[in-house]
Design a binder for these strands. Structure first.
Lengths: 186, 186, 186, 186
DNA sequence: TCCTAAGCGAGACGGTACGTCTTGTCTTCCA
DNA sequence: TGGAAGACAAGACGTACCGTCTCGCTTAGGA
């Protein structure tokens, strides 16, 4: 276990914050590594001592975020989808700036795939395909993650006008309960 | 009505085909305009007489594609969601190369937004919010488009192993019928 | 002697005038052929039916100008260098805009060489090298042309403040009389 | 006094040598910056970190050259124009390749103006206009520089057939002694 | 407490892509 | 049918960014 230099931690958090701030200002795609290091007060070449490219920095941020979210969801009751949904929307609402950046940063499929592999997979019960069911379980998982992300996107685009509680109810109605009716228990 | 120079049409289709082919080979993001023009057998500077950047070329292709798809869907019976779904999956299956490029090219939200505004909006019945309903109609529209796109993504990632008929049935089960149960008729 | 279409003449003079006008405004080097044709009210491709490039148009103008000048000088008395000089400076003073363009258009040696071969050569008496003279006659010729051009350049750069008569006197003192003292009679 | 990075010096001399070599081969005007950097073994973009354009690189070379030449002339006796002339022709003869490039690179007036302001001005004694003299001193200076350059041009065009000593004598006869006779002491 | 190894700022560099510009050819359309 | 309009190939330009490298300076953390 390397005891991690204090300077290293300082550098990495400065880079992450600079990336988020600049992405909110100008859009992720147009932020250059020079911008990031300048904003962070870090030497340009130093960036590459920590991350091979801009994507990697963002991925590191994403993993931190997803880690926190899944930790939160594990504590939630699996029997009350509306409550789980409220939890999700309350959490992403509190971090909506970071979420906006993550949503806008990569092609849709990539984000969902990363979300899935970065921490959501174990949350989804691995159940064998039901004899009479229409869809394979991996598709159910993909659908529930994608549709949830799409709900969050819509919420942001509309100024988060609805309350997290309301969004949680919608989440349950449009995504979870239909799956439960089909015999899945995501 | 400008009669459109034959050379212009030739140039534009050559560019579009080159973009699709190269995106399938190397990924949209890494294709440079020089690559496109070289492949198309077109002068580099000529590209900019037709499109201001790579994005615009792709958008032109997207609009053509969406135009065809919506034309197809208008002929479908609105009362049979599984049949509509089969139609969709049969069509995107036939054009899966182009679809792969479109799906991988831009951040998820952008694609759905463009799909929506490029031709799908009029297809979704504009109905006032039901008194006891949980979600505003625009959210229903956004959800159905996003979730459908996500289904298509999953289908492609799994090698289009399921038949279009089967995917149409899943589409009806996971997306359309749940909405009908809530009182919407998308 | 081809009878020269009136339209052709019109086109060529329009091009020549446009070149001169634009060169005075922006400098010869930065004037493009598109600029010239636009200013002349002539189709772009039409330029190339008359001249292969910008240089050739300028050369045509130069030859016209030098033709007039040499015609003038032939009438002058060879025995009065100051009077010949006054003639030269009066003439270039009257056409100083064109002269400025010609002077600024090409590397120094080129202009002198063209002047020389375009009409000045026959003016300079071809005399065999004097037995005791220091310099070959061609050098004398080159020197007198170059130094005269340099005088004109200085005159222009200083706003043509001195009178043509005064410049003619300087021309005689600095260039012609020294050569006469050495036994040449240019 | 900045200590100048070794790499910087290496890059700049490589660029200068490449420019000279290519100008001799193809003519200054047709040498592109890509040619220069390719020949110098230098990255294309690196050129612009040192010089804003081709002209600037040439100017830097010119200034170095003129600096050396004026250093040389300062050591010469002002009382023997033929000896000074021989010095000049011996020096430009030794560097005739560079000189050819400089002479062919820009419009005549520009070169003389740069020569003058780059180092020759202090060499020319600043003397008040003589009461009875015909020409202002600045004109005398301009004339002597231009006429000398013209002599060099002629020498090069004729294959440097005459010896530097002979050219020095001509220089004294055609340019310097006539000025001395008029009361100037350039 | 000191010393060694590291993290770091600075910045030169090669390389690649961009979007603009100009040249000269060639085609199409119109009078 | 002959000239204007303009599409086109070719390629240079100057800019921006990336990722690598080297050079010193500073500072942390073990001896």
């Amino acid at each position: 276990m390397p005891p991690i230099d204090r300077r290293v931690r300082r550098t990495q958090t400065a880079l992450a914050q600079a990336l988020i701030a600049l992405s909110l200002e100008k859009g992720y795609a147009t932020v250059s590594i020079r911008d990031i290091t300048a904003r962070a007060g870090i030497g340009y070449a130093t960036f590459f001592r920590h991350y091979p490219d801009k994507e990697s920095l963002l991925t590191a941020v994403l993993e931190l975020f997803v880690g926190e979210l899944t930790g939160l969801l594990e504590t939630a009751s699996a029997n009350n989808p509306a409550a789980s949904g409220e939890l999700i929307f309350r959490y992403v609402g509190e971090h909506h700036e970071l979420c906006r950046v993550l949503l806008g940063s990569r092609s849709g499929g990539d984000l969902v795939r990363q979300l899935y592999s970065a921490g959501l997979r174990p949350l989804l019960a691995e159940q064998p395909q039901q004899p009479g069911s229409v869809a394979p379980p991996e598709l159910i998982a993909h659908h529930s993650v994608s549709a949830t992300v799409a709900l969050i996107e819509w919420w942001f685009e509309n100024g988060m006008a609805l309350s997290p509680t309301h969004m949680g109810e919608i989440y349950a109605s449009l995504i979870i309960r239909p799956l439960q009716q089909l015999g899945y228990n995501p």
